[in-house]
Structures are given as C-alpha cells and as structure tokens.
C-alpha cells in the first residue's frame, strides 16, 4: 500500500512528457495500441458485414411474411432470434460463443468475436431495415408490381434503395455502437484497443494516459465514420429538393 501510493505520487507529479514517454515511446508501447486498433477494426468489419447480411435477410423475411402471410416458419425463427439476441447482454452472448459454442474448437478468437458481434448487431440492423421498408408507401410496391416486376425485383430496385436512404442515420448509429461495443472482446482473450490500453496501464501503473489515448482513437474512428456517412447521405439525397 505504502509503495503503491508512493509510486502513484511520483507518477502524478511527473511531467506530461515523461508520462507520454513512459506510456507510449518506451519499449515501443504505442505499437500495442496500433495492433489493438487493428483488431478493433477487423472485428468491427467482420461483425458489420455479418450483421448487415443477417439483418437484411431477417428484415425481408419479416416484411414478406407481414405482407403475404407466407414463410411462417422462417418468420417464427426470426422472431425468436430477435427476442433472444435483444433480450440478453452482449457480454453473455460473446462468452457463450467463446466458451460454449466454439469452446472445443481452436478457432481464432478474433473470428469468434466477429461472429458473436455480427449475430448481435444483425438483430438491431434487422429492425432498422424493416422500419425502413415499412416507411415506403404501398403505392411504390404497387407501381412496380403493376409494371410486371416481380416481388424481388420491386424490392431490390424500388423499395430497398429508398428504404436504405431513410434508415442510413439509424444504421450509422448502430455502426457506432458496434465499434465501441467490440471493447469487450478482451474478455475472450483478444487484445483490441481497450485491452491494449489496459496492458500498457499494467506495465506503467498509469491509467490516465493509455485510456485517454484509447478514448481519443475510438473518438477519431467514430468521427471518421460519421464524416464519410454524412457525405454518402448527402449524395443519396440528390433526388430530393
């Protein structure tokens, strides 16, 4: 106790540049932040792709069922999926995926994490896309079908592009949540950005510097994403005056 508070005192009074040196430069510690960032980005992208695919399929199943009453079994599966995934903590889901589902396999935990986060995100994306599909007036479907287009052609060419535009802000929101949520992947032994910051902290006994650095990197990542998505949104809005 005495020594640790003594060390803390020393570190607190140490100058900013000394702290910076100790936390990032010494032993090339900044490299672990870089490799952590890489893990965060890779897991996010895996989860994003999987989430969008699952979300899209579930949204189509649900809205097709609502419209025609067909696909009963798939619709029930979708509903159960949404209830379970949205009703349980992401943390539990990722642990179950790591310790139970892939418990006996030697699969890379980065991939297991991607799958777990993807399945989780898919539930939210599904409802976002479904709300987008429902936001398009029935007349659009009728116009497409009356021209002789099939259900899927109408969906793909007329409804989904408009729905996508309407839900882009909500999708970006979900992407942001996803980026930050991957911070718990450390619990299954993957060294992402957050975990990297904790590793540095365990070496230097300074929590502030590495956590601040991690926070700033997350912030930059989210701001970058928001910037590009705003650009995309503006481009998609060209048809509206």
């Amino acid at each position: 106790m005495g020594t640790s508070s003594c060390i803390r005192g020393v570190l607190l009074t140490a100058s900013f540049s000394e702290k910076f040196y100790a936390n990032f430069i010494k032993d090339d510690r900044w490299l672990s932040l870089v490799s952590g960032l890489k893990v965060t980005i890779i897991v996010t992208i895996e989860a994003l792709l999987l989430g969008v695919i699952i979300g899209f399929i579930v949204a189509i199943v649900r809205s097709y069922h609502d419209k025609t009453g067909k696909l009963k079994v798939l619709n029930i599966i979708s509903k159960v999926y949404l209830t379970v995934i949205r009703g349980t903590p992401t943390m539990i889901q990722i642990l179950i995926m790591y310790l139970v589902v892939f418990g006996s396999s030697s699969m890379d935990s980065m991939i297991i994490g991607g799958i777990a986060f993807g399945i989780n995100s898919g539930a939210y994306v599904a409802e976002i896309i479904r709300s987008g599909i429902m936001s398009i007036p029935a007349g659009q479907t009728e116009a497409g079908r009356s021209l002789g287009l099939s259900y899927s052609q109408t969906m793909w060419l007329i409804i989904v592009p408009q729905a996508f535009k309407n839900v882009l802000p909500a999708l970006v929101n979900e992407m942001i949540v996803l980026i930050k949520e991957t911070a718990i992947i450390g619990y299954i032994g993957e060294q992402d950005l957050t975990k990297a910051a904790m590793v540095i902290q365990s070496r230097t006994f300074d929590a502030f510097m590495p956590l601040l650095a991690a926070a700033l990197i997350y912030l930059a990542l989210v701001m970058l994403l928001t910037f590009f998505m705003n650009k995309l949104e503006r481009r998609l809005r060209t048809s509206e005056r």
């Binding site: 007349g139 116009a143 007329i158 408009q162 048809s239 509206e240």
Partner: peptide, 9 residues
C-alpha cells in the same frame, strides 16, 4: 394511380 407513384429515387 391517383398518387402517381413515380419512383422518387
């Protein structure tokens, strides 16, 4: 249709 239903996009 009454409400035209052109494809706005």
């Amino acid at each position: 249709f009454q409400h035209f239903n052109l494809f706005p996009h």
